[in-house]
């Protein structure tokens, strides 16, 4: 297997005056894999992507994309990667087709190739019918798709996506994930930033969590979730007078149980699906009525709580006041 890194960051630092946006970030992304950069707003994700895509110059450290140094060979880097930025940067007043042609022309691609590829991409992103409408009239999901299509016009081997699903409704989000998986199947190497753990979990092979510009955790989604306390088993009991009984019963299965009497809610960190079915049976045997029973997956907040001891939102607030 060829596992040479296609994207490589070594000790990247970016300072704006006194403020350090990115602080000693290093990672490697093997060819054909998906790399997730996870963190709250203001963590330094976008700045990292901007350095990797030649839009910002690192204060120190270095990075290579498709074998080219981002500072010394920016032209070669630009020629081999595609970027979809955080705000969909397609031209509102052009049609989808005109946007694709514009970027194809700017890449200096063969004209007949651009025509062929435009049809291909519109088809792939279910935009064939909308292709001749101005982008202004597109829905949020369609804008994201045309934006992504535009980034793919020159068949880049590396694709950078900065928060590709932020602001999308759940359905468009899942659709976009499917498109991204397809790209990876075709051999594209993907680096994406996200605020959502489930998104990183769905797509990424490797994840780096950053906070205040620093890497605070690194690993596969599974490793990361184990680090942050895996999933919790959550039971909401129907009747107040059965809460204590249910808690005792739960302790017999999973050990540690957190009880919220007012909400009639019991939370057992570290529970798994086996424990879930056991608990279901025992509750049933004891004739305890429940409103809700299930696994609660760790959210980004949980990960942050586990890794840093503070919540994700608090991080961004501190960022603002810094």
């Amino acid at each position: 297997m060829s596992r040479e890194p296609v994207i490589e960051a070594v000790g990247l630092v970016k300072r704006f005056g006194d403020f350090t946006a990115v602080d000693d970030v290093s990672f490697e992304v093997p060819r054909g894999s998906v790399f997730g950069l996870l963190g709250p707003n203001g963590a330094g994700k976008t700045t990292t992507v901007r350095m990797m895509t030649t839009l910002a110059i690192p204060t120190s450290g270095s990075a290579r994309v498709a074998g080219h140094d981002v500072v010394k060979e920016p032209e070669a880097v630009r020629a081999s990667m595609g970027l979809t930025a955080q705000s969909a940067t397609v031209d509102d007043l052009l049609t989808g087709r005109e946007n694709l042609r514009l970027i194809g022309d700017l890449y200096g691609l063969d004209r007949s190739f651009v025509r062929k590829r435009t049809d291909e991409l519109l088809e792939q992103f279910s935009l064939t019918e909308a292709g001749d409408k101005v982008v202004k009239d597109y829905s949020g999901g369609m804008r994201r798709r045309i934006d992504l299509a535009v980034s793919l016009i020159a068949h880049p081997s590396v694709l950078f996506l900065d928060e590709p699903t932020t602001g999308l409704d759940p359905r468009s989000r899942v659709e976009l994930w499917d498109v991204l998986r397809e790209l990876v199947r075709d051999g594209t190497t993907l680096l994406l930033t996200t605020q959502y753990l489930d998104e990183a979990d769905q797509l990424a092979d490797d994840i780096v969590v950053i906070d205040h510009g620093r890497i605070i955790a690194q690993g596969t989604p599974l490793e990361l979730k184990n680090q942050s306390g895996a999933a919790s088993l959550v039971v909401t009991v129907s009747r107040h007078d059965q809460v204590r009984q249910a808690a005792e019963l739960l302790r017999g299965v999973v050990g540690d149980v957190h009880v919220d009497e007012d909400a009639r809610k019991l939370t057992a960190p570290g529970g798994d699906v086996g424990a879930l079915s056991q608990v279901a049976t025992r509750l049933d045997d004891a004739s305890i009525d429940v409103d809700d029973l299930g696994m609660q997956r760790p959210s980004l907040d949980d990960v942050f709580l586990a890794l840093t001891g503070h919540k994700a939102e608090e991080t961004s607030n501190q960022e603002v006041s810094a």
Partner: peptide, 11 residues
């Protein structure tokens, strides 16, 4: 590893 997968033809 560093070459383009399917390089698009450049004019």
């Amino acid at each position: 590893a560093v070459a383009l997968d399917r390089p698009a033809p450049r004019a």
